[in-house]
Simulated scan of single mutants.
Amino acid sequence: MTDRDDIRVRKALQGADFPAARNDLVAYATDRGEVDERTLAALADLPEGTYGSVDEVVDAVPHRPGSVADR
């Protein structure tokens, strides 16, 4: 994950309620409608679990999230 990815993930989850499960975070970002596919892929590639804050999400985002083309 790059610094720009970090910023995109934080922006995508701005206003999200925590704690939140991975699927809830993906749904939240999707519902906002302003999130690019790369950020959605990064969130979808998070390990299954519940996250207590956006910082925990950023720390858990894979360094090389799956490509949307691979899905």
Rank of each mutant, 00 (worst) to 15 (best):
D3P: 13
D3Y: 10
R4W: 08
D5E: 12
D6E: 13
D6T: 14
I7R: 09
I7E: 07
R8Q: 07
R8C: 09
V9E: 00
R10Y: 02
K11R: 11
K11C: 13
A12K: 03
A12C: 03
L13Y: 07
L13S: 08
L13V: 10
Q14M: 12
Q14R: 12
G15H: 02
A16I: 04
D17L: 12
D17Q: 11
D17R: 15
F18G: 12
F18C: 06
P19Q: 03
P19C: 10
A20D: 01
R22N: 00
R22A: 05
R22V: 02
N23V: 15
N23C: 13
D24L: 14
L25P: 03
A27V: 03
Y28I: 02
Y28L: 14
A29E: 00
T30V: 15
T30S: 10
D31E: 14
R32Y: 00
G33N: 02
G33H: 10
E34F: 07
E34P: 09
V35G: 07
D36Y: 08
D36R: 08
E37N: 12
T39S: 05
L40Q: 04
L40H: 05
A41E: 05
A42G: 14
A44Y: 01
L46E: 02
P47D: 14
E48L: 12
G49F: 04
G49W: 01
T50F: 01
T50N: 08
T50E: 07
Y51W: 03
Y51C: 05
G52I: 04
G52K: 06
V54Q: 04
E56I: 03
V57T: 06
V57F: 10
A60V: 08
A60D: 02
H63P: 15
R64K: 09
R64W: 00
R64N: 06
P65R: 01
G66M: 05
S67Y: 06
S67P: 15
V68K: 09
V68S: 01
V68D: 00
D70M: 03
D70F: 11
D70Q: 04
